[in-house]
Design a protein around this nucleic acid. Structure first.
Lengths: 212, 212
DNA sequence: TAGGTTTACGACTGTGGGGCGAAAACCTCG
DNA sequence: CGAGGTTTTCGCCCCACAGTCGTAAACCTA
């Protein structure tokens, strides 16, 4: 589960209570029950930690099968990427904490690689899909959205470009409302929302397009 | 396993010898052995059908977990995409055949969806990676490469653009050799090869680039 | 009302892909 | 040997679109 918190991309980790890797930080998850879908299982295990309603997007990353990934027993794991909007702050149990992805502690199993793979997948999809909807609040100003993109991408983003690109592609739409400026003044910012809240691919990114 | 054969994108299928879906066409594969990697398992099962040396690229697609995907028992499956260069024609057993992806027969399980997902993954990666190396012979003319791209992408591709795009990105390099023209004449074509034969991502495709 | 702050937006620029037509380099046939 | 046909190559133009910058708009406080 990734979320932009305080201008940084962070991941939800919990401290293992069992061997192997007792006490190490690790990704939330657990075993699959018979007759259960992988996605159902993920949601069930996450529900123990956080309110699952707040998961705006969930997608499969990869299935890990290295026989040495668990030193105690042979075990497969299917990694998922979950995204949480920046405006919510789910209450989490004592043994669970958000960690900035840029400074991860020692992680159990191959979880470090999984977190980095999730970050990379997110960064790629921010470029050619509307994935931002899963990180942003329901409505937002362009400045707020820009901060979210900066945190997730890890580099500066021009607000002008962000607006033009996302509007041209039809990813964003204006609500018509404005946000009142703060104490320091400034022009009131227009409020936007994502046109769709489900993942959609921006087709025109394909190079070697069909003619016409 | 996908391959461009006779100007079409085709997939290797075999006819099931057991229930469920006895007699239906299905993707090659089988059960995972303890202590085995998923990729090792795939290669092991494929080796029964074809010479595995000819697999130029293999990548994981998705793990399917719908409890109803197998009517007889609860079973997970991890789908892989394998690519075979167009210049080889592996000998295959009696019960195995290449089928054009555009006209698939009735397939067992969820294999139809898997094949289409593999085709779509391939099409996407042809745009922003050097994935073509896994479909093309070691050396080739631009016309030959163009035919492969047309077959895989399912639409026309201008030879001019193909050359310019792939050369600019450093995906292709000229060998310096030329191919003798055929009976009908014509200017001899320059021979090219892929600079790398391992999957590499063309970074500059990212929209919302870092400044500079 | 002046000065500061934040947002919005138009204008310019540069890069790179798409399309087209001419030139190059070979063939065969009369 | 030259004419005509075939295939490949390459230069040129166009246009879409992202990146940059500067200015105008719209608010605040003092």
């Amino acid at each position: 589960m990734l979320q932009v918190r305080e201008g940084r991309l962070e991941v939800l980790l919990w401290q293992r209570a069992r061997e192997p890797f007792l006490g190490a930080w690790s990704l939330p998850g657990g075993y699959l029950e018979p007759g259960e879908t992988l996605e159902e299982s993920i949601r069930r295990h996450l529900a123990v930690k956080v309110d699952v309603q707040e998961l705006a997007h969930l997608e499969q990353l990869e299935t890990l099968s290295d026989p040495d990934r668990n030193p105690l027993e042979w075990e497969l794991a299917t990694a998922y990427l979950g995204l949480v909007p920046a405006d919510v702050d789910p209450t989490v149990p004592e043994d669970t904490r958000w960690h900035p992805v840029s400074r991860l502690p020692e992680l159990a199993f191959d979880h470090r690689a999984i977190v980095l793979a999730g970050r990379d997948r997110l960064r790629a999809k921010l470029s050619y899909t509307n994935a931002g909807f899963a990180l942003a609040p329901p409505v937002f100003t362009l400045s707020e959205l820009r901060e979210i993109y900066v945190a997730a991408l890890g580099h500066e983003v021009s607000a002008t470009n962000l607006q033009r690109v996302l509007l041209r592609r039809g990813v964003l739409e204006a609500t018509g409302e404005r946000r009142e400026p703060g104490r320091s003044g400034g022009r009131p910012a227009a409020l936007y929302r994502f046109r769709s809240r489900r993942l959609e691919i921006t087709d025109q990114f394909a190079v070697l397009r069909p003619p016409g």
